[in-house]
Design a protein around this nucleic acid. Structure first.
Lengths: 244, 244
DNA sequence: GCGACTTTGTGCCTGCGTTCACAAGGACCT
DNA sequence: AGGTCCTTGTGAACGCAGGCACAAAGTCGC
């Protein structure tokens, strides 16, 4: 029963519900939210954990446990009310409020992000597009005028931006990161393929496009490729295994 | 000592080294590879686990344990030879061979991926760009001519593509996925915000841009925002906690 | 050649996350 | 009103991953 409580001085009988949601659960809440959105669109009013779990692509026991961290929002014997659950999860993640976001680096990736519908539809509002290239300033991308990096701090303060997205080349990422932090940004999503240093209190998440491909390559190699291209030691070990 | 062995009939004294690398380790190998590349570029010949761990942003004990799954490539009292370790990790992931990749959906994201230098430099070679929009066929992106979706199967067979990248809208993703699988692709990286179904034997990884932002929003809400915007129940619970 | 020093490789412990299986609880029918 | 059926919520067991701390093993200086 004792859940993980962070920076909470005294442990009481029951934790405050909204605290102590495991990180793994938080990462899945958006999945459930999307599944619920699809169900709502189809006019489904009520859904069981089995059905919802299948829509989201997870185990139903895991789904129920995840939801139980948020509270008891289901009805035994019936299931979950789609709209109600949707609202509860949205509130838990913080999607009922508006999150102004600034995107730094308006290359192909930055533009893709600026145009990404998944942001706008979920409480995120891109309020600033910033690029270091002066020739791009003034250009309109996704309905927004691109600003020069010099104006980064102004954009952040003006719109009270708390979340920044870095889509610059690796070489510029740390400088941009430092400036974001200095200007008051406390959550950063980094697409640049480099390790960023942030002070305590700033959340940093990383999306690395090439790492995902490399992981796929690893598994791919182990499927059919591996037996065809053995190293000397592997061949020796395999031979031994077969002999036995 | 007994590591996880999958689909191996008999367990021998020592597992085949290249098997049984934990998934969490596989996901970090690309990190080490990048750190090593940076060190090599700086002319560093030898590196200790402490130094390399810092470059990669992980715990040094974890780094050593990860590397130990691949073999004993270090020298006690000295460290790891940068180039040698780099080669070993590359070979383990399968980056010493060439991986032809096809990208489906040449929107902003698809273009970003096609131009992404991190692919080419690590054994991945984009051999096909495919888009459903006929007006885009013939267009040149990242030095490649965009093909129409109709030619997808031909591109895959011609180049023996094993890895496909889906960067289409959500609605088209499953159809594209099915065709990739039917044409022989066995590893898929999906950027479309939707759940894909693949048969056994096909590896599927997902990158969801909006999920990452939502996770950040969750933590952001819990920093300073939460105390300012309590729900009625949260307020009641907080009051109770303070009273005690 | 030997001892001191350095760094790897790993045994062990701890904690988180997943899954099973079932009790608890509510709806619905009779 | 009572019983049956269904689905949630969760206790408990298990397995993977992370991290400490140390023994093993090599280098380097003398």
């Amino acid at each position: 029963m004792t859940r993980r409580t962070r920076h909470v001085p005294a442990e009481h009988a029951t934790d405050i519900a909204s605290r102590g949601v495991p990180e793994a659960t938080v990462a899945r809440l958006p999945l459930y939210l999307r599944a619920l959105a699809m169900l709502a669109e189809r006019g489904v009013a009520t859904v069981s954990s089995d059905e919802l779990a299948e829509s989201a692509g997870v185990n139903s026991a895991k789904l129920r446990k995840d939801l139980s961290y948020l509270g008891s929002y289901g009805t035994r014997g019936v299931g979950y009310e789609v709209e109600y659950l949707r609202h509860q999860i949205s509130r838990e993640i913080g999607l009922t409020q508006d999150w102004p976001v600034v995107i730094v680096g308006i290359g192909n990736l930055g533009q893709a992000l600026a145009n990404y519908a998944g942001f706008a539809s979920r409480g995120f509002r891109v309020v600033g597009l910033v690029d270091a290239d002066p020739t791009r300033s003034g250009e309109v991308v996704a309905g927004l005028v691109v600003s020069h990096t010099d104006d980064l701090e102004q954009v952040i303060r003006e719109h009270r931006v708390a979340i920044g997205v870095i889509a610059t080349p690796a070489g510029a990422a740390q400088r941009v990161c430092d400036r974001l932090v200095a200007a008051g940004v406390t959550s950063i999503l980094n697409f640049a393929p480099t390790l960023l240093q942030v002070p305590d209190g700033v959340d940093l998440r990383k999306v690395d496009l090439s790492i995902e491909l490399q992981i796929l390559a690893y598994h791919e190699q182990r499927k059919n490729g591996a037996p065809l291209a053995l190293t000397a030691e592997q061949a020796a070990e395999l031979a031994e295994a077969v002999r036995a």
